[in-house]
């Protein structure tokens, strides 16, 4: 199984990031829910400005993995290091890492009692202590970037699903994160709205944001991902570039999964 290029070989080694700098390091991570082991010895590196797409059947642990990165779930063994900061029980560490990571949820989780503008400016004002005028200017900029500046004064309940998710992306960008984590961002959307959100994500990728996306959108993975990770039963089964991953999967499991969804 030799290749000419050395960094695009298809195998289960998720730690090969070529010549990029390390942004996120996951080493030997186990996660248990009671007796059920959701993550089994995950070793993974994510490089700067890299777009990693994680796919896999439900229950494979992919959401759990990214939720461990910003401590929405607590890992039981192993190490997680984000931008040089190691994730520990210390609250200050956790807060620091959360400032550097942004997350976009499947169910948007916008704050329904605040306007769109307030949704976006809440964290910058309260956490980074940015004055109101400055925060709102930045927020309007971000809303332009996701192409819905006219919705600024409305409430989340008045927006469509696709618009809400784009606001959620803008909200997570407002904190100037180094990494964006996406947890199935389009799974709760009607088909006609998926495209607008994926287009936003593609723009972000092309602007050089480091992204980890858990998704079922294979088209997105093929176009934008630098690496595709396939997880099943709490383990990384196969890793590769989109070209190799989708055209020539090595593992039986990968082939089975791809045949079911493609």
């Amino acid at each position: 199984m030799t290749d000419q290029t050395n960094s695009t070989a298809v195998d289960a080694d998720a730690t090969n990031i070529g010549d990029r700098e390390v942004m996120i390091e996951v080493a030997g991570v186990d996660k248990f829910f009671g007796d059920f082991q959701a993550l089994k010895g995950i070793d993974m590196l994510v490089g700067q400005q890299e777009v990693v797409v994680v796919i896999g059947p439900s229950g494979s642990g992919k959401s759990t993995l990214i939720r461990c990165i910003n401590r929405l779930e607590k890992h039981d063994r192993g190490r997680i290091v984000v931008d040089g900061i190691e994730l520990s029980d210390d609250v200050r560490n956790i807060q620091e890492i959360r400032r550097e990571t942004g997350m976009v949820f499947q169910s948007f989780n916008l704050f329904p009692h605040l306007t769109i503008l307030d949704n976006i400016t809440l964290a910058p004002r309260q956490v980074r202590r940015i004055p109101k005028a400055e925060a709102e200017a930045k927020a309007m900029e971000l809303l332009e970037r996701v192409k819905i500046p006219d919705q600024a004064r409305k409430f989340p309940g008045q927006l469509s699903g696709g618009q809400q998710q784009r606001v959620a992306i803008a909200r997570s960008l407002a904190m100037n994160p180094k990494v964006l984590l996406f947890d199935e961002p389009t799974s709760a959307l009607d088909p006609e709205m998926i495209k607008e959100v994926l287009d936003t994500m593609k723009d972000l990728a092309s602007e050089g944001m480091t992204m980890i996306c858990v998704t079922h959108e294979m088209g997105f993975a093929r176009e934008v991902a630098d690496r595709v990770l396939f997880m099943a039963d709490g383990q990384v089964v196969e890793v590769g570039t989109p070209e190799h991953f989708f055209t020539n999967p090595q593992e039986e499991r990968t082939r089975l999964f791809l045949s079911q969804i493609l």
Binding site: Q37, G41, D76, R77
Partner: peptide, 16 residues
């Protein structure tokens, strides 16, 4: 180095 063998006899298939 990710491939260090654990020094302890901890069973990695059970929660800590």
């Amino acid at each position: 180095d990710f491939m260090t063998t654990p020094a302890s006899s901890e069973d990695f298939s059970k929660p800590p």
